Amino acid sequence: MSSTEVKTTVSEGGLRYKSKAPGSPFKASSSFSGATMSCFLCGKHRPRSLMQTKRVLGKAQPVCAPSCKELDEQLKG
C-alpha cells in the first residue's frame, strides 16, 4: 500500500479543519439578484437569474431554466 499524507485534521477545540481555507465557496453578494440558489432537480448552484420556479411535489421549487441539461450545454459552449 502507498503511504499518503493526511492533510486535513480536526482541531482539539471543534470540527474546524486546519488545512481548509476559511469562508464559503459561494461569493457573497449584497444584491439579491447576484445570490446563488441550488436547483431542486440537479443540485447545482446557479445565479438566481438562471433559475425559475416550478411546482414539484405540490410546492414551488427553484429549478434551472429552461432545463438543467440545456443550461449545462449553453454554459459549456
Rank of each mutant, 00 (worst) to 15 (best):
S2F: 06
S2H: 07
T4P: 03
T4C: 06
V6P: 07
K7M: 05
T8L: 01
T9G: 08
T9P: 05
S11Q: 12
S11A: 11
E12I: 12
E12Q: 12
G13A: 10
G14P: 01
L15H: 11
L15S: 11
R16Y: 09
R16H: 06
R16M: 09
R16E: 14
Y17R: 02
Y17E: 08
Y17D: 09
Y17H: 04
K18M: 06
A21I: 04
A21N: 06
G23H: 00
S24I: 01
S24G: 01
S24C: 04
S30R: 10
S30L: 07
S31M: 03
S33I: 10
A35S: 12
A35G: 13
T36D: 08
M37R: 08
F40L: 04
L41W: 09
G43D: 15
K44P: 03
H45M: 05
R46S: 02
P47N: 05
P47M: 04
R48F: 02
R48I: 05
S49I: 12
S49A: 12
L50M: 13
M51W: 02
M51R: 01
M51N: 02
K54C: 04
K54N: 05
K54E: 10
R55L: 13
V56E: 09
K59F: 14
A60R: 13
Q61W: 02
C64P: 07
C64D: 03
C64L: 02
C64Y: 03
A65C: 07
P66R: 01
S67M: 14
S67L: 13
L71K: 02
D72F: 07
E73D: 13
L75Q: 11
G77M: 14
G77P: 15
G77F: 11
